[in-house]
Simulated scan of single mutants.
Amino acid sequence: MKGFTLIELLVVVLIIGILAAVAVPQYTKAVEKARISEAKVLLKSLVDAEDAYVLATGEPCGTYNLEDLDITLPGTIKKESGRTHIITKNFEFYADECLESSRGGVSLDFYADRIGKNYSVRVVGNGYGGDKPGIFFCWQEHNEAAPCQQAGAIKNADGEWIFQ
């Protein structure tokens, strides 16, 4: 009767362990990238709905209350300080910071805070002279680079972390 020796079994287990050590981090990155893509799609929908709101009402900054927008997002609605937050399994979406840009216009920023992680996906509203509309930034507290790097963001020429 032929069988495997202990050495042969150990070699097979070692090879499987090495493959798992390489594959698991890549799998984790791919999953996080897919989640960020989900946030980008929902943020883009919010920006478009906010543009329609601005055109309909004439309010330069749109609205911080996401319920005012003509859009239905998946998730649970949470009210906080007069603003609406939408909470999904992976992100908390909200509007914040209506800022005047260097070009003289204003725009509303939208955020998707990654639940359980230390970063947010941020997009500046389209218009009205806003700086860098349509770019998805990685925002992290205390200007730490590690959360954005781990999420797959890259540093652009201006030193900002962005998602491509």
Rank of each mutant, 00 (worst) to 15 (best):
R83M: 12
F163Y: 06
T88C: 02
M1V: 15
G116D: 05
Y64L: 12
G129T: 02
Y111Q: 04
H85P: 02
R114M: 03
K40S: 04
L42C: 06
V13L: 15
L69D: 07
D113L: 09
Y119P: 01
V124N: 15
N90I: 05
G62C: 04
E92S: 10
K78V: 15
R122A: 07
A21M: 11
G130A: 11
P147W: 02
N65Y: 09
G130N: 06
E32C: 04
D131E: 14
R122M: 10
I162W: 01
G62V: 03
D51V: 12
G152S: 00
V47R: 00
K89W: 03
G17L: 07
Q164K: 13
E80P: 01
A95T: 08
T88E: 01
L6H: 05
Q26F: 08
E97C: 10
D158C: 11
G75T: 09
A23H: 04
R35K: 15
G82A: 01
I15T: 15
S101P: 14
D70P: 00
E160A: 13
L73F: 14
S107C: 13
D70I: 00
A146K: 14
Q150T: 06
G104R: 10
F136R: 05
I7P: 02
N126P: 10
Q164M: 08
D109Y: 12
E50K: 10
R114A: 08
I7G: 03
I86K: 10
S101E: 13
C138A: 00
C98G: 05
A153Q: 00
E92H: 06
S45Y: 05
W161D: 00
Q164E: 14
D113F: 05
S120P: 01
E144T: 14
T5P: 01
V31K: 00
I87Y: 10
E144C: 09
L42T: 04
L43R: 08
A52I: 05
G62E: 06
G104S: 12
K132A: 12
E38S: 11
Y27D: 03
H85V: 08
T28R: 13
K155D: 02
L46K: 05
A52G: 04
F91A: 08
D51R: 09
L55V: 08
W139T: 13
E160I: 10
E92P: 06
G3S: 14
I162R: 00
G125L: 06
D131Q: 14
L6S: 03
D109S: 15
K78G: 13
N90K: 11
V22G: 03
K44N: 13
T5D: 02
I86G: 11
G82H: 01
E67R: 15
V54K: 04
G3N: 09
A157G: 06
E67D: 15
N126A: 11
T57G: 00
R83G: 04
A52W: 04
L108H: 07
D158F: 11
C138V: 00
N156Q: 12
L55P: 02
I36Y: 03
G82Y: 01
N156M: 10
